[in-house]
Design a protein around this nucleic acid. Sequence first.
DNA 1: GGTGAAATCTACCTAGG
DNA 2: CCTAGGTAGATTTCACC
Lengths: 151, 151
Amino acid sequence: MLDSTDRRLIAELQRRADATAQDLGDLLHLSASQAARRRARLESEGLIKGYTARLDPAKLGLSVQAFVQVQMAAHNADNAASFVRLVTTLPEVVGCWTLTGEADYLLRVWVTDLPALNALIHHRLLPHPAVSRVQSQIVMDQPKADSGLPV
Amino acid sequence: MLDSTDRRLIAELQRRADATAQDLGDLLHLSASQAARRRARLESEGLIKGYTARLDPAKLGLSVQAFVQVQMAAHNADNAASFVRLVTTLPEVVGCWTLTGEADYLLRVWVTDLPALNALIHHRLLPHPAVSRVQSQIVMDQPKADSGLPV
DNA sequence: GGTGAAATCTACCTAGG
DNA sequence: CCTAGGTAGATTTCACC
């Protein structure tokens, strides 16, 4: 249901989604029509959920990336739903995860500068009634940028 | 140099990179040729670095996502370079950041199951001579998936 | 795996501010 | 002079063989 050619195909599409069917065929030693057919199948199966542009944060004026750990005052569904609603409305928050362990939420944020990070924390996150504690760590370096999923 | 139309354009391309010039033109109330020209300009300027496919982890058999904090035994350039080399060769590690604070590296990993996570930690990370301590937290839920950068 | 019609892109042209 | 819209040729996709 997913052979090694499919895996090489999706690996390449994670690297370069604008590859043409001809490009993919050349890479996989397949005809363009076969490569296109495989890609269409992976899309319709939902394995490929879509395509996105990779942007340069610096060229958007985003110089500070940080991870923010957020602890909740109480662990109930209302608090959680309300906080998640807040987080989804904040464009600077590009990812949010709930983890095992003590911190309730881990946020990944991109902001223009340090004052913007402080504003986010003190004027958006901390005022929320369900939030009890917020701890942020700035990203100094990113030795491995978001590579795609392992295939 | 980057007007509101450009911003709406890149926002849409983060959402749906396979939009045609016609689609983008309709959205932005521009002709297809102008939308295509703006996209080409943003690509050549490097603001759009490329395009990638978004995959469904579950359909790839990846059921466990985790964040792994790694502390180094000593803080010197050789150790760091050696560890970064290791990390870049591990496909399960889809992101690696160095943060302010006590943990030296934060890794984001995708694995098939919990044993695979343990194997990664105990057979790949901990045996590295520069690594002193490893702490992992499993992702329970992802209320906000990797949304694009704020534009 | 191949083919042709349809869609799309791209380079060039013209018009208007 | 710069930006927008239009057009034709080249490229790519897609449905069918």
